[in-house]
């Protein structure tokens, strides 16, 4: 992250897209949009457009990967070639392989893996358009897809990044802020259990700034959690009145 540009926040304290430092980008979430998948969700966060789908639980193929005492979660995070300015090769990059791993590890704590031994759940995430913070938005969508697939879960997982641009700690960095800002701290949270399931950081932060960034990110996660619940319930909007 370079420090050339000190113009990411204007005199009024507003960001390039007019947001206040602690403000999220507009978020739109839809659940259950792919008919073939066992569960699915779609999220738009700023210009991010991301699809998540779940297949399973089902028997593991190849069979030798199956575990006798729990199910395995597999995750593939992938960016469409047209999702970024310059065409991205469709072959999985090292970044995508790492993100697939950390996204999986952010979702695993939320799932009762021991319920269905010898099975697997596949999580597929496709980034259709990227605008910074795709790993967090992917986790937010994938957690909803899991719930939509009827997978027993301890909690949903909501994710959001905080970071430092110019000299301010800000919430939910968009691409430009991520690229020329000073630090990025993606966080995933199981809000009801107050458990952090993803934490990464790059850039430079003092201990005090780090604490501030983590707390701001957690606040963002809680706001996103409320939206997740609304999106999940919206699918069952006609379930208000119940027949005896």
């Amino acid at each position: 992250m370079s420090q050339k540009n000190n113009k990411l926040i204007d005199k009024k304290g507003l960001r390039l897209d007019g947001r206040k430092p602690d403000e999220l980008r507009p978020i739109k979430i839809e659940v259950g949009i792919l008919s073939n998948a066992d569960g699915s969700a779609y999220i738009e966060q700023g210009k991010n457009k991301i699809l998540a789908a779940i297949y399973g639980p089902k028997e593991v193929h190849p069979k030798h990967l199956a575990l006798p005492d729990r199910m395995i979660l597999r995750c593939r995070y992938h960016m469409a070639p047209f999702s970024v300015q310059e065409r991205k090769s469709p072959a999985p990059s090292r970044r995508e392989i790492e993100l697939s791993k950390v996204i999986r590890e952010a979702l695993e704590p939320a799932i009762f893996l021991e319920y269905y031994p010898r099975t697997s759940i596949d999580v597929f995430v496709e980034v259709l358009q990227a605008d910074g913070g795709t790993r967090c938005a992917s986790i937010t969508a994938a957690a909803l897809a899991l719930a939509d697939a009827g997978i027993p879960m301890k909690d949903l997982v909501a994710a959001c990044a905080a970071g430092k641009v110019d000299d301010t700690i800000v919430l939910d960095l968009m691409d430009t802020e991520d690229k020329i800002g000073k630090a990025d701290v993606p966080v995933a949270l199981m809000p009801n259990l107050n458990a952090i399931t993803l934490l990464q950081m790059d850039g430079i932060l003092s201990l005090e700034e780090f604490e501030k960034a983590v707390n701001l990110a957690l606040e963002g996660c809680r706001k996103i959690y409320a939206m997740q619940k609304e999106a999940l319930k919206a699918k069952y909007v006609n379930v208000k009145e119940v027949e005896e």
Partner: peptide
Amino acid sequence: TPGDLIAEGDYVAGENTYKENNKIYAS
């Protein structure tokens, strides 16, 4: 939705719920 705290105290976790620290949550 999963993670919602439904009840606290002397309850038994039935279908599609779980108990942790004497609290019943939806799964």
